[in-house]
Amino acid sequence: MNAAGNLPTWAALLTALLVLVGAAATLIGSLGLLRLGTFYARVHAPTLGTTLGMASILAGSALFFSMLEARPVVHEILIAVFVGLTTPVTLMLLVRAALYRDRIEGSKEVPAADAAEHSIPQD
């Protein structure tokens, strides 16, 4: 914290609040990995960290560096856009892989595979 001498008070407090809120959201999301009972329920938990947690911490970082360097530092938006667009893709693919495996094993907890093979785009 040695470089932060010329930071306004309100910016420091707002950054502290944003970083704490983001970290708390991420922690609750990861706690969901422990507490939720089945795989399909657990998939919902990490999205807390990739939406509210990430947005809040990155907003705090953008505010802090913009105030510190007295110019707009907004390249945190890039991380938000990349992670925000890619996380849904990975989660969707992971759930489909899990569903595929459960259906092959004949699990009773997932919906039956009526015409599921046609819905995977072949092109």
Partner: peptide, 8 residues
């Protein structure tokens, strides 16, 4: 999918 609580 990016809304917590629902997944496609």
């Amino acid at each position: 999918t990016s809304t917590p609580g629902t997944i496609w």
